[in-house]
């Protein structure tokens, strides 16, 4: 059997954006085939971490390392990381006037007839034809943006899938579909649901955490990953006593 690809290993990572240090001493490992959750208050640096992994150049790595299946990611640009199989559903993706989502899907399909067919089937099955003929994110509702992003991610079939608040702006009915799509992405083989892709998801949604299996949650506060553990236990604790309890936890360790 092939080893599952997608191991992410972050060591001692510090990142600056716009001259401000937003991530400090991050240690985080996502073993292959596991799906982890990243939680934390607004502005704690969750998006920054995902953007740094994807390779957005404005997130400047000051120290530390990020490796993916043993490859050092830091010398690689956005394109190269994407081509290694890293995918990101952005929290706030840009609008691209005049460029239809279809064009991007065609690019992803490339010359591979099998992949093209897969993408066509995907559009039909998910009933997303109307989104495909729209310009990328132009005049889309918040929920539609997430659906389009997930469709794109599914089309790309990344080995390591990152999702930044896939649920925000999505209505209660659509969130069920969204979870199905997420599961389809993370457990690509229907017959073997336990054979999973590697993933890192930013979400605080009970619906998602109830429907999409996750292996571990990491709590991020003020640009640091404070602790990690069983997603249910951590979410329960946060729901009961807020992120403040995590801060207390941190200070206890000092």
């Amino acid at each position: 059997m092939f080893p599952v690809p997608g191991k992410l290993e972050i060591k001692n990572l510090a990142v600056e954006v716009g001259g401000v240090r937003v991530l400090h001493n991050i240690h985080l490992t996502v073993p292959p085939g596991e799906v982890h959750v990243l939680v934390g208050p607004n502005g704690s640096g969750k998006t920054s971490l995902l953007a740094t992994i994807a390779g957005y150049p404005q997130y400047r790595v000051v120290s530390g390392s990020i490796s993916y299946d043993g490859t050092d990611l830091l010398p690689l640009g956005l394109t190269e990381r994407a081509r290694l199989g890293i995918g990101l559903l952005e929290q706030r993706p840009p609008t691209i006037n005049g460029v239809k989502l279809r064009l991007l899907l065609d690019y992803i399909g490339g010359d591979d007839p099998e992949r093209k067919r897969f993408i066509e089937d995907l559009i039909k099955e998910t009933d997303h034809a109307h989104l495909v003929d729209r310009n990328i994110h132009e005049d889309l509702s918040g929920g539609e943006i997430k659906k389009a992003g997930l469709l794109l991610l599914l089309a790309r079939q990344p080995h390591f899938a990152m999702m930044d608040e896939p649920d925000s702006g999505v209505d209660m009915d659509s969130i069920t579909l969204l979870c199905q799509l997420m599961n389809r992405l993370l457990s690509p083989e229907r017959e073997h649901p336990a054979k999973r892709r590697t993933g890192l998801i930013i979400t605080h949604s009970d619906v998602i955490l109830g429907r999409v299996s996750t292996d571990k949650a990491h709590v991020m506060i003020d640009g640091r990953v404070l602790c990690g553990g069983n997603p249910r236990i951590i979410m329960k604790k946060i729901r009961e006593s807020g992120f403040d309890s995590c801060v207390d936890c941190l200070h206890q360790g000092e």
Binding site: Y56, R83, P93, L103
Partner: peptide, 17 residues
Amino acid sequence: QYLMAQGLEEREAVSMI
């Protein structure tokens, strides 16, 4: 950058835009 993160080269991304 968004398009590059989907696997396009910079040149291809600029052309598409």
